[in-house]
Design a protein around this nucleic acid. Structure first.
Ligand SMILES: [Zn+2]
Ligand SMILES: [Zn+2]
Ligand SMILES: [Zn+2]
Ligand SMILES: [Zn+2]
Length: 281
DNA sequence: ATTCTGTAGGGAAAAGCCCGGG
DNA sequence: ACCCGGGCTTTTCCCTACAGAA
């Protein structure tokens, strides 16, 4: 831990979730309704090679402070997604910025928008369309298309956060705690505090040992149903719907895909000098 | 024997849905 | 009618432990 050098020889540090969704018919694809994509436009499809990309950057040095890269990386990704217009310029970590677009199913890069961009009169790939809906991440080639689209959100979402400008159907206060850091729900057992009561309830099972979800095959119990569902894949054969963009290996989950390692040790710790073969060491 | 690497298990965050009380 | 929050839920992410392979 500590400060890390992220030596990016692997072009996608986190495996694509969206892009891989094509291989899994049950994936909830939230594409549709985008007026720029036309009716029945299919999900990502075979991802086209990205055009106009800078060549993969060889080394990106970044001081991560006291936090490890795996702690800081998710927020970088989220911020890049929320703030990006179309270019990585100004981003603290262009690597993260590239990553999220290369993997993004919401606005797949391979598809051209139907209307030309106002400035250039070119049909841009959807992922590069400059008009960005902050509520759903869809992209539009011109402001009026975005405006029209956003009126649908105004109907659906009567609440709007003054901090991040996102719209919600309810529970605005609860969302705003993600900005304020307020943690009103206290565990009397261990003293930890949580932003949502649901976190506290689930957390309390770690003290009580309650495991309400039971595997019908092996009778093992789990505290969270998501864990049971993941576990049950171990009984049901070799379903491997996710594959790595870079090496093509298949995995049963995005988690497994993200944890797998590549040759070349893309991660290096500046403190101990050790090369790491994957982000999770 | 040591290092790599895939996998299982477990702790959380964010946000959607339903509902009842005020 | 409207707002709010509790309770429950799904989805996704992050991390660790560990066993078998290299
Ligand atoms: Zn907000
Ligand atoms: Zn506790
Ligand atoms: Zn089981
Ligand atoms: Zn790979």
């Amino acid at each position: 831990d500590g400060s890390m050098i992220f030596n990016k020889t692997c072009p996608s540090p986190r495996p694509a979730q969206g892009a891989l969704a094509t291989q899994r018919s049950t994936f909830p694809l939230a594409l549709s309704q985008c007026p720029e994509q036309g009716v029945g436009s299919s999900p990502v499809g075979q991802e086209l090679p990205l055009q106009g990309e800078a060549p993969i950057q060889k080394t990106i040095t970044k001081k991560w402070g006291n936090r490890s890269i795996r702690d800081i990386f998710p927020s970088l990704l989220k911020r890049a997604q929320a703030e990006c217009g179309e270019s990585a310029a100004g981003m603290q970590d262009p690597t993260a910025h590239r990553g999220i677009h290369a993997q993004d199913a919401i606005h797949p890069r391979g598809k051209l928008s139907q209307r030309p961009d106002l400035a250039t009169q070119q049909r841009l790939p959807m992922g590069q369309c400059p008009q960005h809906c902050i509520d759903c991440d869809k992209r539009f080639s011109n402001p009026s298309a975005l405006n029209q689209h956003q009126r649908t959100h105004a109907r659906e979402q009567p609440y709007r956060c003054s901090d991040c400008d996102k719209g919600f159907i309810a529970h605005l206060r609860r969302h705003q705690r993600t900005h304020t850091g307020e943690l009103p729900h206290h565990c009397a057992e261990c003293g930890k505090d949580f932003a949502q009561i649901a976190y506290l309830r689930i957390h309390q099972r770690t003290h009580t040992g309650e495991r309400p979800y039971r595997c019908a095959d092996c009778d093992k119990g789990f505290a969270q149903i998501a864990h049971l569902r993941i576990h049950q894949r171990t009984h049901s054969g070799e379903e491997r719907p996710y594959s790595c963009h870079d090496c093509g290996k298949s995995f049963s989950s995005t988690d497994a895909s993200s944890a797998h390692a590549h040759r070349g040790r893309p991660f290096q710790c500046t403190d101990c000098g050790k090369s790491l073969h994957r982000a999770y060491s």
